[in-house]
Structures are given as structure tokens and as C-alpha cells.
Nucleic acid binder design. Structure first.
Length: 107
RNA sequence: UCAGUUGACCAGAUGGUCGCUGUGUGUCUGUGAUGGACACAGAGAGGAAAGUCCGAGCAUCAAAAGAACAGGGUGCCAGUUAACGGCUGGUGGAGGCGACUCUAAGGAAAGUGCAACAGAAAUAGACUGCCAUCGAAAGAUGGUGAUGGUGGAAAGGUAGGGCAAGAGCCUACCGGGCGGUUGGCAACAAUCGCCGCUCUGUAAACCCCACUCGAUGCAAGAUUAAGUUUGGAUACAUGUGCGUUCUUUCACAUCCAACAAAAGUAUCGCUUGAACUUAUUGGCGACAGUAAGUCUGGAUAGAUGACCAUCCAAUACAGAACUCGGCUUAUAGUCAACUGUAAAC
RNA sequence: GCAGAGGUGUCCGAGUGGUUUAAGGUGCAGCCCUGGAAAGGCUGUGUGUGAGAAAUUGCACCAAGAGUUCGAAUCUCUUCCUCUGCG
């Protein structure tokens, strides 16, 4: 039910071992999971803005990932880059879609 | 109209679909124990939540009292407050035509330090000039602080008299000091009299005076948690104990060092509070009293979003992290009162 | 969240009230040395803007903005940015 990734140790594990996919606005880290489920964490750097803008971006990303059909048996970390906070909701959604499609192609 | 000053208000609303975090009630379900799922009801960021610049509550440092030293803070007067370096009302000063705004505003006659360069000279005594005496002249001796230029600052200022030339040397006005009177709680103001009146600036330099301050911050700290091993120091003395030293009362059979284990995604601290709303009383006001009513975030990768429609001028700055009172900074819009240097009707 | 440290030419870094002091190194440019290079030696060199034909020279700038002072990179206040520590 809850697809959030919470533990700091899991984050650092995924940064170390995960496969990376880059686009202009995001970096995706992916790692295989032991369970028939997926978990996703968001990383928004302090460079992107103050607390208000970072919170807003995280909320929007959580909304988008809820709607997308995401493959199970995987754990993800979605890292936002500078510039992504200025996009509106629709373009942000397309960018995230493009990111996941790029990863699928690779596999 | 335009330009400006001050004081308030507000921080989108309504409906629909999907989704998040607590609380209460009910149903179902599970464990050694805390629980978990679903349904319904009701709640869910700000005026600055920000900066962390001040002041408190609260917690730990075992608990206190006194003295000396060191260190920090504040600094016109009165009030207000739990407290403050905040706020309110006054006084003095500065700015503006004005409405009004700003003000670290005690002491330089307790002492010490510093004041570059320029200038004759910088807190003291003579470059030029002026005057007198001596001298044929050059110049010497004395008087002068008025002239010149320097400087942030040059011995109160302006005018007249006076003098060899000058000077508060004398007078008037302005300024200053001392004393009295009146008004005011006071800061201070007004006024009268006396004194011709040597004594620069800097205390956001050391300092003096008055008042005041223990340190560390919820990552404080508590529960779970019972207590283990090794080595060293010390038996009527030693060690430790809120900046340092001393004294007194005391506390601990301890104190120091090393190692191991527990434990993290746990629970408490955590939200009812110097609270908020309305009415009313006192006060110029900050604020205080009384009455009635209300319960109003508690997360922990960290909760308020996305889309559509309508209204509309409709958004800017921006997200609680233990909690309050202020200050400062960022910022969209609306309203009211007031001012008029200048221009137009 | 709480506590603390810092910001100076391209870079590192001294200067902690005084006018001709923005030290020194690094980098860059030129010359010497060498058959040629490296190393070494010597000389010059911050940025912006104004004056001048040129040599030269005035003013401003020490993160930003105010204040104290005759005078501020230095003292005080406010803001911005960077870094560090705390279970």
C-alpha cells in the first residue's frame, strides 16, 4: 500500500549499487527488490530552492508516480536536478514518463 | 491628478473526481506485548511558519549560602510586562516645506591612551604680519593671539568702543557656567539674578558609575534498564561537585582510565496555553481586570496536492519540527485619515 | 532543529583604525641562461571608470547596505553566501 522509501540505509544502498538513468531534469536509480512490490524515494537537493518549493516538487512527484504504471520487484530513487522546479504539472508528468520509458528501453 | 506620510484589513471562494496525517466512535482481526484493517464523524501551516537577533517557560548538570577576582549585557525620564535590549507616553537632539520620521541619548572636571598628513603651533607658546624700545642699517629684546594660510578641530560669535598695536580689556545682543523661583512624579522647560567666562575631539579606545547575568539546549532529557569485566588512586584522610580562588553547610564509598553489551524504523517529552473569541470596566496609551463561550496541527524521507468548471483584478513572499512574547528581513492587493515644494483644471 | 567558524586581485593568503602598504607566493607576459627545453634568475602585471597625443594620473572597489569616527578591509548593526560540529 505504502510505496515510500524511508530508511537512510536503503537510500545509500541504492546510490551505491543502483543502475542510473539520466535526463535533463532527473536521475533515476534502480535496484532489484526481494518482494513482489516496488518502493520509490524522492531526493530533492537544497540547490533547487527553499523548503516551500522543495516540498511542492516532492508532492507533485508523488502524485505523478501514483498514476504511472510502475514495474514491481524494483526499488527506485528519483533525484531531481536544477530547473525541474520551474516546470508546470503536465510537462513534469511527461518528463517523468520519458525517464521511465528510457529505463525500459535499456533493459 | 500627481507626489508623499501614517494606521488598519486581507492572504482567494464554491462545487465535483482521485489521494495524504492525527483524533473520536463502531465493526472485523492479531500478538509474549504495543497493535493492524475498514467504515462514519470531525480537524489539519503563516503573517511572516524565515533569520536565530533578544527575552522567558521546560529539562539536565546532586543541593545551597557568602566573599573576592575575571567575563558578558544594558544605558535620557516615567510606565507596561512572566521577562526583555521589546512596547507605550513624554523630554532633549537630528532630518523634512509639511503630514511625520529617526535617535547605542550616562560620565571627557577620576585616570590612561590615540589624534596620521598638513600647519609656526594640536592642548601648547611664536613662521609671517602689526606695535614699542635700541640701532645708521641688518637685526636684537619685549608686547600681541586680532591677520595669512593649514586642518575634522586653532582658545566663545557678531557689532561698537578702546589701545602704541591688540586682546572679554569694556559695553550690547546671542551662546556658556553657577545659584534661586515657578511648573512637572521625573527627564526637563520657563524665568530672575550673578560670573567676562583657561580647560579640543574620541568611551561602537581602555575605563569609571548605575542596574543586571550560572552553563548547556528537546539531537535537552526520561522510559525500556536490571547491571558486567580489567587496571589504578584513596581509609578518618583523599578525590569529585554549575567560569576561577577561598570559606561554610553538605552529598557520594567513591573517583579516574580502558573494554564489552544494550538500541532504534520503539515509547514518552508533544501540545490546555503568561491560549483564543466576544462583550464590558479602568487607563491618553502599551496594558490590566471581570463575565460568557471555544478546544484550534503534532509530522518523523517529514502530512494540505493534482485535474476540471464557475466567480474574480486575483495573485506575491513563502511550509510548523518542544512552546510562547518581541525584533529584523522578504512580499501581492484593498481601505481610511492626513500633508502640499512644484504643475494642471 | 540547535550550536559555531568564515567571506580580501585568476587562485592561495598576510594585513585588526592613519595619510605613499592592498605584503608574499601562484598564475600570466617579456628578457637572461641552453644546441633546444625544464628548473633557476631579473623585470612588469588587480578590476572598473574618467582625463591626456603619450609618458602618466584622478576616483571607486576588501561579500552587500547603513552607522560611529577627522579618517574604516579593520569597530557596531542588518542582510546575503560558504563551511563545520551535535543522537
Amino acid at each position: 500500500m505504502d510505496h515510500r522509501l524511508k530508511k537512510n540505509s536503503q537510500f545509500s544502498y541504492i546510490y551505491k549499487r543502483g543502475e542510473r538513468v539520466n535526463t535533463q531534469y532527473f536521475t533515476l536509480f534502480v535496484v532489484k527488490s526481494r518482494f513482489d512490490d516496488y518502493k520509490i524515494g524522492f531526493s530533492v537537493n537544497k540547490k533547487i530552492g527553499k523548503a516551500h518549493t522543495r516540498n511542492k516538487l516532492k508532492r507533485r512527484l508523488r502524485e505523478i508516480t501514483k498514476r504511472l504504471p510502475i514495474k514491481k520487484i524494483k526499488n527506485y530513487v528519483l533525484m531531481a536536478k536544477e530547473g525541474s522546479e520551474q516546470l508546470d504539472f503536465n510537462t513534469l508528468q511527461n518528463e517523468v514518463k520519458r525517464l521511465f520509458e528510457k529505463y525500459e528501453k535499456r533493459v
